[in-house]
């Protein structure tokens, strides 16, 4: 019997194409699942406006559920706007294990010249790290380096 809870568990198997260790549920981009007359409508929201993965994710959801004989449609919503507060605890742990530092609580982005956020190294856990660049390999990441183990790493930057 298909119900909304079952669909949520299926969606946990659809991964983010850029960070495959995260499911779209971990990432907090699935906003709602509605089931009516055996049709499923799933609402998702982009992490960043220009996120090139959105079309891919939409298609992946439809195809994955089709394999389970569920006909789904995907709706995109912009408001409320995605925030890293929606990353699940499970998702944050998976990021750390994968070598990406999960978001830390940051002061408002519009504060100029604020002291940079302390981001612990995901590899050796040292807090002696430095920001290399505010921008990284994807819109959701910044680039850091650990002063203790010298490893460069990605930081999944805080967005509120």
């Amino acid at each position: 019997m298909v119900n909304e809870a079952l669909i949520w568990t299926y969606l946990e198997e659809v991964s983010d194409p850029e960070i495959p260790v995260l499911s779209i549920v971990d990432l907090g981009i699935v906003r709602s699942v509605k089931l009516a007359n055996e049709k499923v409508e799933i609402t998702i929201t982009p992490t960043y406006s220009g996120c090139p993965a959105m079309k891919h994710i939409e298609q992946a959801i439809i195809e994955f559920l089709a394999e389970k004989n569920i006909q789904a449609s995907v709706v995109l919503t912009l408001s409320p706007a995605w925030t890293t507060d929606w990353l699940t605890e499970n998702g944050k742990n998976k990021l750390r294990e994968y070598g990406i530092a999960p978001p830390e609580n940051e002061v408002d982005k519009s504060v100029l010249f604020a002291a940079p956020t302390i981001v612990p190294c995901p590899l050796c856990a040292s807090k002696d790290t430095r920001m290399i660049s505010q921008f990284g390999s994807t819109a959701c990441k910044a680039h850091y380096q650990c002063n203790a183990c010298m490893e460069p790493f990605d930081y999944f930057k805080c967005l509120k």
């Binding site: 982009p46 960043y48 406006s49 912009l78 408001s79 409320p80 706007a81 995605w82 925030t83 408002d108 982005k109 519009s110 504060v111 100029l112 505010q134 921008f135 967005l159 509120k160």
Partner: peptide, 13 residues
Amino acid sequence: EKSLKETKYHWKH
């Protein structure tokens, strides 16, 4: 709402 968050980061940069 969506764009403001991104733009603040650009502005800081």
